[in-house]
Write a protein that binds this DNA or RNA. Sequence first.
DNA 1: CAGGTGACCCCAG
DNA 2: CCTGGGGCCACCT
Length: 99
Amino acid sequence: MDEARHERIRAAVAAIPEGQVATYGDVAAEAGERSARLVGRVLREDGADLPWHRVLRADGSSAPQILDEQHARLRGEGVEIRDGKVVLAHHRAASGWLS
DNA sequence: CAGGTGACCCCAG
DNA sequence: CCTGGGGCCACCT
C-alpha cells in the first residue's frame, strides 16, 4: 500500500532525538524516499502528532508559515538559532539515526 | 491529458 | 544577496 511509504516517513521523523534536527532531505533518505518534497507534504497533512519541528530545510531555515512555532519549540529543547536559521552543524542528527 | 503548486534540493551566474 | 533552471512527487484544476 502507499500507506507504507507514508508510514516510513513518519517513523523517521518520530525517531529524531530531542534536541537534534534533520533536513527534509535527510528524512527522505532515512525513509528510503527520493523526494524531499514528499516529506514536507506528509508533515503538512499529518504531522500534528509528530516532532515535525525537528525537520528543517537544507540550510536550516523554515517555511514562513511554521517559522514561529518551530523556533519556539526548538528553543525549548535548547537548539541554537542564528540569523533565522538553526545551526545545523551543532544539532543535525547523524545519518542512520533510524536504523 | 496539461498545467500549476508546494512545510524541498542543488548548481551556476 | 538574488534569479533561473533542472529534479523531485502527490494532488488539484
